[in-house]
């Protein structure tokens, strides 16, 4: 999530404590004039406009994003597909080798 936060919200020296934010119902995110407001959405299609890096990081940590493909872990599926295919190749090679 750390990397995804960087990708969506940009880099920051702030080390957020999400647990503390989550446990405090009165926590208010102060708008940062240097942060370009960003619209995030969740899986249900709800949208939110975030005005600071911390607010953005908090939402991203909660599964919100600004890119529709983030809900599909394509790289993981790809990795699994290549791993399985390569394994099949190795097993087949082994069988042919033992037959020879």
């Amino acid at each position: 999530m750390h990397k995804r936060t960087e990708t969506i919200c940009g880099e920051s020296s702030i080390v957020p404590n999400f647990e503390e934010i989550g446990n405090n119902p009165n926590f208010v995110f102060n708008a940062d004039p240097n942060f370009e407001p960003l619209t995030l959405f969740n899986e249900n299609g709800n949208t939110v406009l975030v005005n600071s890096w911390l607010e953005c990081a908090n939402y991203v940590n909660g599964g919100w994003t600004n890119y529709f493909s983030d809900y599909f872990n394509g790289e993981f599926i790809y990795f699994t597909l290549v791993s399985v295919s390569f394994l099949i190749y190795l097993i087949r090679k082994r069988i042919i080798y033992s037959e020879e």
Partner: peptide
Amino acid sequence: SYEFSGELYTENYFLYGYLLSIFA
């Protein structure tokens, strides 16, 4: 890499997929 909480993050499938592909 590490999460904000200090937890180890080992799900960089972007890199794993690339390296495995080249290896294969």
